[in-house]
């Protein structure tokens, strides 16, 4: 396909999901996180890893709000192959978040290793996509946010269950944490791509 028809479909898809607002505001908020972290950088400041996790959460939350449209039930009735589109949407959103995180990491204070940033983004987007496929997209970021708040306030743990619980704060070579993030990412992506966003009601 080519021509204005193709472009119009794309634009309608993006607008229905309020992607333009999220795409415009995400770099701004990420920049603000970087400035905040830079302003408070110092020997006594919170570990940069926490800033990195919070920045990843913010990006994932923005992507999460775009995972569904105002009327998911109506969209389900359309005779369109949704899964390739949802795949592209999810992958593109994840890549955008990772790139922005890397940009903040390079430009400002070092937040975490690249592997950690990628792992955290993948795991959090997995939780968010899973939630979007069950309860809809608009508040789909809430479980990821709750998990992050819990892990950061309770602090990283070294026991087996503790590593699963605080996976986003573990070092890059922690096998359990990486496995947890991978499982979350795969199950969330599969659930969202195959089932699509749930459409319960408008909030």
């Amino acid at each position: 396909m080519s021509g204005p028809g193709w472009a119009r479909w794309e634009l309608l898809y993006l607008r229905a999901r309020e992607v333009p607002a999220a795409a415009a505001l995400l770099p701004v908020t990420m920049l603000a996180v970087g400035v905040l972290a830079n302003a408070s950088a110092g020997p006594s400041s919170t570990a940069p890893a926490v800033v990195g996790v919070c920045a990843a959460l913010l990006g994932v939350a923005f992507v999460g709000t775009t995972l569904g449209s105002a009327d998911a039930v109506l969209e389900h009735t359309a005779a369109i192959r949704w899964w390739p589109r949802r795949t592209v949407h999810l992958v593109a959103g994840t890549i955008a978040v990772v790139l922005l995180l890397l940009a903040v990491d390079l430009a400002g204070p070092s937040l975490a290793t690249t592997a950690e940033l990628v792992r955290n983004t993948l795991g959090l987007i997995g939780v968010t996509a899973l939630c979007a496929s069950f309860t809809g997209s608009r508040l789909s970021w809430c479980p990821a946010a709750a998990w992050t708040l819990l892990a950061v306030v309770a602090g990283p743990r070294s026991s087996g269950a503790g590593q699963v619980l605080s996976w986003m704060l573990q070092p890059a070579d922690a096998r359990t944490a990486a496995t947890t993030a991978a499982l979350l990412a795969v199950s969330g992506a599969a659930s969202y791509i195959l089932a699509g966003p749930a459409g319960l009601r408008r909030a």
């Binding site: 607002a21 999220a22 505001l25 908020t29 603000a32 996180v33 905040l36 972290a37 926490v50 800033v51 919070c54 920045a55 959460l57 913010l58 939350a61 923005f62 999460g64 709000t65 508040l139 970021w141 946010a145 708040l149 950061v152």
Partner: peptide, 12 residues
């Protein structure tokens, strides 16, 4: 986008 932004920035 307001709720997640508020959440992350107030936490940070």
């Amino acid at each position: 986008l307001t709720p997640p932004t508020l959440l992350v920035f107030s936490f940070l």
